[in-house]
Simulated scan of single mutants.
Amino acid sequence: MDEETFERVRAVVASIPPGHVLSYGDVAELAGLKTPRLVGRIMAEDTADLPWYRVLRSNGTVAEHLRHRQLELLRAEGVLADGGKVPMSRYRWRD
Protein backbone atom coordinates (compact mmCIF):
# COMPACT_ATOMS: atom_id res chain seq x y z
CA MET A 1 0.00 0.00 0.00
CA ASP A 2 1.33 3.44 -0.84
CA GLU A 3 2.11 6.24 1.60
CA GLU A 4 -0.56 8.53 0.14
CA THR A 5 -3.33 6.01 0.87
CA PHE A 6 -1.99 5.52 4.36
CA GLU A 7 -1.99 9.27 5.02
CA ARG A 8 -5.49 9.78 3.59
CA VAL A 9 -6.89 7.21 6.02
CA ARG A 10 -4.98 8.77 8.90
CA ALA A 11 -6.31 12.23 7.97
CA VAL A 12 -9.92 11.03 7.96
CA VAL A 13 -9.56 9.31 11.33
CA ALA A 14 -7.83 12.37 12.79
CA SER A 15 -10.72 14.58 11.63
CA ILE A 16 -13.47 12.69 13.49
CA PRO A 17 -14.54 15.10 16.24
CA PRO A 18 -14.96 14.07 19.88
CA GLY A 19 -18.39 12.62 20.58
CA HIS A 20 -18.77 11.20 17.08
CA VAL A 21 -17.87 7.99 15.27
CA LEU A 22 -17.47 6.63 11.76
CA SER A 23 -17.59 3.11 10.42
CA TYR A 24 -14.66 1.53 8.60
CA GLY A 25 -16.73 1.89 5.43
CA ASP A 26 -17.30 5.59 6.09
CA VAL A 27 -13.56 6.12 6.49
CA ALA A 28 -12.87 4.16 3.31
CA GLU A 29 -15.38 6.25 1.35
CA LEU A 30 -14.01 9.55 2.65
CA ALA A 31 -10.44 8.42 1.92
CA GLY A 32 -11.37 7.32 -1.60
CA LEU A 33 -10.81 3.61 -1.04
CA LYS A 34 -12.80 0.73 -2.47
CA THR A 35 -12.87 -1.44 0.64
CA PRO A 36 -13.12 -0.91 4.39
CA ARG A 37 -10.78 -3.87 4.91
CA LEU A 38 -7.87 -1.69 3.85
CA VAL A 39 -8.85 0.83 6.54
CA GLY A 40 -8.73 -1.93 9.12
CA ARG A 41 -5.30 -3.02 7.93
CA ILE A 42 -3.94 0.53 8.07
CA MET A 43 -5.41 1.12 11.50
CA ALA A 44 -3.91 -2.11 12.81
CA GLU A 45 -0.47 -0.85 11.80
CA ASP A 46 -0.38 2.73 13.03
CA THR A 47 -3.01 4.66 14.96
CA ALA A 48 -1.44 5.20 18.36
CA ASP A 49 -1.57 8.97 17.89
CA LEU A 50 -5.10 8.97 16.41
CA PRO A 51 -8.58 8.65 17.91
CA TRP A 52 -8.75 5.03 16.64
CA TYR A 53 -11.58 4.26 19.05
CA ARG A 54 -13.96 6.47 17.03
CA VAL A 55 -13.94 3.96 14.16
CA LEU A 56 -16.44 1.12 14.52
CA ARG A 57 -18.00 -1.65 12.51
CA SER A 58 -20.97 -0.50 10.43
CA ASN A 59 -23.40 -2.06 12.91
CA GLY A 60 -21.94 0.00 15.78
CA THR A 61 -20.00 -2.79 17.45
CA VAL A 62 -16.40 -2.44 18.52
CA ALA A 63 -13.35 -4.63 18.11
CA GLU A 64 -13.80 -7.46 20.60
CA HIS A 65 -10.18 -7.53 21.74
CA LEU A 66 -10.35 -3.76 22.44
CA ARG A 67 -13.94 -3.69 23.64
CA HIS A 68 -13.45 -2.47 27.20
CA ARG A 69 -10.91 0.25 26.34
CA GLN A 70 -12.74 1.42 23.21
CA LEU A 71 -16.10 1.74 24.97
CA GLU A 72 -14.43 3.49 27.90
CA LEU A 73 -12.81 6.08 25.62
CA LEU A 74 -16.05 6.63 23.73
CA ARG A 75 -18.02 6.98 26.97
CA ALA A 76 -15.57 9.67 28.14
CA GLU A 77 -16.58 11.68 25.06
CA GLY A 78 -20.30 11.18 25.62
CA VAL A 79 -20.77 8.34 23.12
CA LEU A 80 -22.95 5.82 24.91
CA ALA A 81 -23.26 2.21 23.86
CA ASP A 82 -26.32 0.10 24.44
CA GLY A 83 -25.33 -3.49 25.15
CA GLY A 84 -21.88 -2.90 23.68
CA LYS A 85 -23.28 -1.39 20.49
CA VAL A 86 -23.09 2.29 19.59
CA PRO A 87 -26.22 3.66 17.86
CA MET A 88 -24.63 4.83 14.61
CA SER A 89 -27.64 6.96 13.63
CA ARG A 90 -27.12 9.06 16.74
CA TYR A 91 -23.32 9.39 16.84
CA ARG A 92 -22.18 9.06 13.22
CA TRP A 93 -20.25 12.12 12.15
CA ARG A 94 -21.64 14.03 9.22
CA ASP A 95 -19.19 16.50 7.72
Rank of each mutant, 00 (worst) to 15 (best):
E64W: 13
N59H: 01
A44R: 12
G32M: 10
G32L: 10
R69W: 12
E45D: 12
Q70P: 00
E45H: 10
S23I: 01
D26I: 01
R41V: 10
R67L: 01
P36N: 03
R57L: 10
R67P: 00
Q70D: 10
V27F: 04
A44I: 00
V27Y: 01
L38D: 05
L30D: 04
A48T: 09
I42G: 00
H68L: 12
G19M: 03
V62L: 04
L33H: 08
R67S: 12
A76W: 08
V55R: 05
L22Y: 07
M43W: 02
E29C: 07
R67A: 13
I42Q: 06
V55E: 05
R54L: 01
A31L: 07
W52T: 02
A44P: 02
T35N: 14
H65T: 14
E77T: 06
V62H: 06
R75D: 15
H68V: 14
G40E: 10
V62W: 07
A48R: 12
R57S: 11
A44H: 13
D49Q: 12
G25D: 15
L74I: 00
E77D: 11
P36F: 12
A48Y: 08
D49T: 10
L30K: 14
E77V: 06
R67G: 03
A28W: 06
I42N: 05
G40P: 09
R67Y: 08
R75M: 07
Y24I: 06
N59V: 04
L50K: 08
L30T: 03
Y24C: 08
A48E: 13
H68N: 10
R75K: 15
D49W: 07
P51G: 03
D26R: 03
L50C: 00
S58C: 03
L56A: 04
Y24S: 11
L66G: 06
V62P: 09
A48G: 15
A28R: 04
E29Q: 10
P51Q: 09
D46P: 05
V21Q: 03
W52Y: 13
A31G: 02
M43L: 13
G32D: 08
L30S: 09
D49V: 07
L73R: 14
T35L: 09
L56D: 02
T47R: 10
R54W: 02
E29W: 10
A31S: 08
M43C: 02
L66F: 12
V55W: 06
R69T: 13
A28Q: 02
P36Q: 13
W52H: 11
T47A: 12
E64D: 15
L22A: 09
W52D: 11
K34F: 07
L30V: 01
W52N: 07
A44G: 15
S23Q: 05
V55M: 07
V39C: 03
M43Y: 04
D49N: 11
L73T: 05
D46K: 13
A76D: 15
E72F: 10
L66R: 15
R57C: 06
Y53M: 00
A44Y: 08
E45W: 10
A76S: 15
G19H: 06
A31V: 06
